[in-house]
Simulated assay, not measured.
Amino acid sequence: MRKIFFLLLLSLICISNICAETVYMTVGDTKTLSPTVLPTKVLAGQPAWTSSRPNDVKIVSTTMYSCKIEAVKSFSGYATIHCLYYYRELDPTTGQYIYQRSGYVDYNVFVEETEIKSIEISPTNIALNYGETYRMSVTILPSNAKQNVTWSSSNSSVAFVNSNNILGANGYGTAIVTATASNGLSASCTVTVKKEGSGSENSGDNNGDNAQSSTNYDEVDYYYQISKRRMDALRNKAIQQHNKK
């Protein structure tokens, strides 16, 4: 008798619960989940939908029989979208819906990384005075692909770019700074650093709109040294002019 009861209970669990379905999405996609089991149930209220990774796969909206989700970003593994519902069953004796039971539906959502097609830096040539900064402009297509890049410089003693895409001119000469996307694609920009008063202007599309003041530069120690060098240079120039009088 106990064995029969156990098998009956197991069969009820199998009927009430559905194995997890697999859903594949890319970043930026939206999808509406509509479990086929729900319309066949007499629901006792609206189901509760939850996401195991709400920052990666978020629930946009829900109705009585569906849920709209959005893939925010790619990640390793998967997110589980859980639908918990309560429903009533028919009493075969009275012909009324009196038994309330619970069931659930799970979806395992995989968010695939969008393939990067291209990366560009604009402008491709920049001229700065010693000590100036410039916010680099990087375009990665498509726009829903990973936008983070890794910066490198052929001569970091002349110019380099920090993690906030700020280019710093900390020496005289020429350097090539390169932005590399997560899939290995890269783009480069030639940076020329000249002494102040040489008459050079930022080249390419840079009309000075992107120039940064030193107070916005996040490398505090570095910029302290830059400011100190500039002040020393100005002081020495003033002393030389005074001695010539």
Rank of each mutant, 00 (worst) to 15 (best):
V23G: 03
Y24V: 12
Y24I: 15
T26L: 08
D29K: 01
D29V: 04
T30F: 12
T30K: 05
T30Q: 11
T36N: 11
P39N: 00
P39C: 04
K41W: 01
V42C: 00
Q46L: 06
Q46P: 12
W49C: 08
S51T: 12
S52Q: 02
S52A: 00
D56N: 07
K58I: 13
K58H: 03
V60L: 05
V60Q: 04
V60N: 08
T62P: 04
M64P: 05
M64Y: 00
C67R: 09
K68T: 14
E70W: 08
V72K: 08
V72M: 02
V72R: 08
K73F: 09
G77F: 01
Y78C: 06
T80K: 05
L84M: 12
L84W: 00
Y85M: 07
Y86A: 03
Y86G: 00
R88D: 14
R88C: 04
E89R: 13
E89M: 12
T94E: 06
Y97E: 06
Q100E: 10
R101M: 11
S102V: 13
D106C: 02
D106R: 10
D106G: 11
V111K: 05
T114R: 07
T114G: 03
E115A: 00
K117L: 10
S118M: 09
E120T: 15
E120M: 12
E120A: 15
P123G: 12
T124K: 14
I126P: 01
I126G: 04
N129H: 09
Y130T: 08
Y130M: 05
G131Y: 00
T133P: 03
M136D: 02
M136G: 11
V138D: 08
T139S: 13
P142R: 06
A145P: 05
